[in-house]
Design a protein around this nucleic acid. Structure first.
Lengths: 222, 222
DNA sequence: GACGACTATATTGTCGACATTCCTCTAATC
DNA sequence: GATTAGAGGAATGTCGACAATATAGTCGTC
């Protein structure tokens, strides 16, 4: 009952290649700014160029690669400012998601979310921070899905979250802040449970804003 | 100096087909929910299926069509709730855009924006409402671009705005509200000119919320 | 030695054909 | 008559080859 799995089952060959490539990019096997040669990838994955092109198109759709006509596709290059901009969008969208979740989540979903947080709290109190990132992700995913807003879900889960993970991996940043994040999560859930849309949004925005500030500090250090 | 043109120059053949198809969809020549047959379109536009597939992929990227593996692509179907959800996302993103614009627009850009609004006001005061929608678009585009946030710009201008226009055309809705919108625009610009980020966001969000409420009323009538 | 035009090569864009999958219609059975 | 199995057809998925374009390197000139 813990992880809110997003099932992305690949039916076609291009699907598999897309998922593989996305993983390779997000996990840094293909470095940021790196070129995606169609011929090279087609030999590497043993598929035709058409399949590779299809996959690259979808990667472009989620803003992981950029294409220039007659030149080719490159993995997006990571800049500190790019990450900040990403968090600005995330703040706006997840704030709205929290607001809508407070309105649209069923009582059962809210109960589940509360249980998840209790569970998560126990895990961390025992000194385990292993599932930390997974737990954080699960929390945010549930609220996003709880918004019941298809556009929000699409943009955040299929777009921004992969990009953020890419930044996190390649900039070698640790997961989300451990200590304070729990309380922030708890307060957001409380606001949702109280059906307080306004407060839910404010708290979620602040939660993400803190993350952003934290990241900005780390970026300035290096 | 009026319209902030977004130059989308088509270099490749797939580009042209994409732009053509997008126009056909948004303007309703291909109806909502309609099927996009690859073979049919390839004969219609005199290009190979590969070009059509590429174009359809991009249409899918901006959420104008939905594809099912081994089945095909259909134009998204329009529902009242879908439009409401779109406006929720728009409220969140453009609110953030206004906030960032208050922070990041140059003094010159702000002066231009003010001039634009004065100009627009003159036009309407004279009883001309012909440029009404164009003017509204121009206002919003400038603020979005003024945010200097690439992700925000991408999602709004390449994604949401085309979808909203599609709704407007096919649901036969008139353009934005005429009378009150001017004052709202003016107040947003004033907040931006004062570099008041918080107020700029609040006013922009409210402006879009009013639009949404207005649309909801019209939808309920029919 | 620097700059510009030209050629060569490699990569992407486009095409038509084949393979595979899904949907429909028919027919047979319960 | 309803349901299910199967054949048929039409659409999408995939492939390899050709055409068009950009980049790199070379040559020539100033």
């Amino acid at each position: 009952m813990s992880i809110a799995v997003i099932t992305e089952q690949a039916v076609t060959n291009a699907d598999k290649t897309f998922l593989q490539l996305r993983s390779d990019i997000v996990e840094g096997e293909i470095p940021a700014g790196g070129k995606l040669s169609e011929t090279e990838l087609s030999t590497k994955y043993q598929v035709s160029r058409a399949v590779i092109r299809e996959a690259i198109n979808r990667l472009e759709a989620c803003h992981l690669v950029e294409r220039r006509a007659n030149v080719g596709a490159r993995v997006v290059s990571l800049t500190p400012d790019g990450l900040i901009q990403l968090y600005q969008v995330r703040e706006a969208l997840e704030g709205m998601a929290a607001r809508l979740a407070a309105k649209n989540m069923s009582d059962e979903e809210i109960a589940d979310l509360t249980a998840l947080l209790d569970n998560h709290f126990q895990t961390v109190k025992d000194g385990n921070s292993y599932y930390q990132e997974a737990g954080d992700l699960d929390f945010h995913y549930r609220i996003i899905l709880g918004s019941k807003n298809q556009h929000l879900i699409e943009v955040l889960i299929n777009g921004i979250y992969h990009l953020i993970r890419m930044y996190r991996v390649q900039l070698g940043m640790a997961g989300p802040r451990v200590t304070t994040a729990f309380d922030e999560h708890k307060h957001v859930v409380q606001a949702i449970a109280n059906r307080d849309e306004e407060l839910a949004e404010i708290l979620m925005r602040r939660h993400i804003l803190y993350s952003k500030n934290n990241i900005e500090r780390k970026l300035l250090q290096s």
